[in-house]
Computed example of a mutant assay.
Amino acid sequence: MSLSDNIKWNEQGLVAAIAQDWQTGEVLMMAWMNAESLQLTLQEQRAVYWSRSRAALWRKGEESGNVQHLKELRVDCDGDTVLMQVEQVGGIACHTGRRSCFYRVAAVDGTLATVDEVLRDPQDLYGAKGE
């Protein structure tokens, strides 16, 4: 059975993909993959996602230079999530210019506090577009 056959694709033909720093274990981001982006990720040994907003393949770092080099790819027990251990080039995974997309912490009352600083202005990374 191929990798793709072991994935439980959602109604849109996508699977959740989590990128984790291969050395620290820090969760950097979550994005979506379709069958083609999953195959390309393995072939190119770099993260290739499916952009739902653009309805197109998205090679992480194609605009910012913050490429994610694949070190290992795992599939969870249910087959509905992919975990990628990656080397994050440039130290920035989030389009907000932060190391991780998970930069806000929830308090008991449900409010959110920003706990991680912006490492690089998103305008410097992407201009007016955003990745």
Rank of each mutant, 00 (worst) to 15 (best):
G91E: 06
N6D: 03
V67M: 05
A47E: 00
S53K: 13
Y103N: 00
K8R: 08
A93S: 14
R59T: 15
S51F: 05
M29T: 09
A17L: 10
C101I: 11
A113K: 15
L57I: 06
M84F: 09
V67I: 15
E131P: 11
N10M: 14
M1E: 15
A47C: 14
Q68M: 02
V89I: 15
W22Y: 14
R99G: 00
V89D: 02
E87K: 10
E11G: 05
Q123M: 14
R99S: 04
D124F: 06
L125M: 15
W58N: 04
L119M: 13
L112K: 03
D80N: 11
L42P: 00
L73Q: 10
G25P: 09
A113C: 12
M84S: 07
L3D: 08
K8G: 00
I92W: 03
T41L: 07
A128F: 15
C94I: 03
E11H: 09
L38S: 03
E131C: 12
S4I: 15
V75T: 09
E11N: 09
L70N: 01
T41C: 08
E26R: 13
C101T: 09
W58I: 04
G61W: 06
Q45F: 04
Q88V: 10
S51V: 05
Q39K: 13
T111E: 10
T41Q: 01
L40I: 11
G13Y: 01
Q23I: 10
H69D: 13
T24F: 11
Q88C: 05
V118L: 07
D124R: 14
Y49R: 02
T111W: 04
E72V: 04
H95K: 01
V82M: 01
M30D: 01
M84T: 12
W22R: 13
A128R: 14
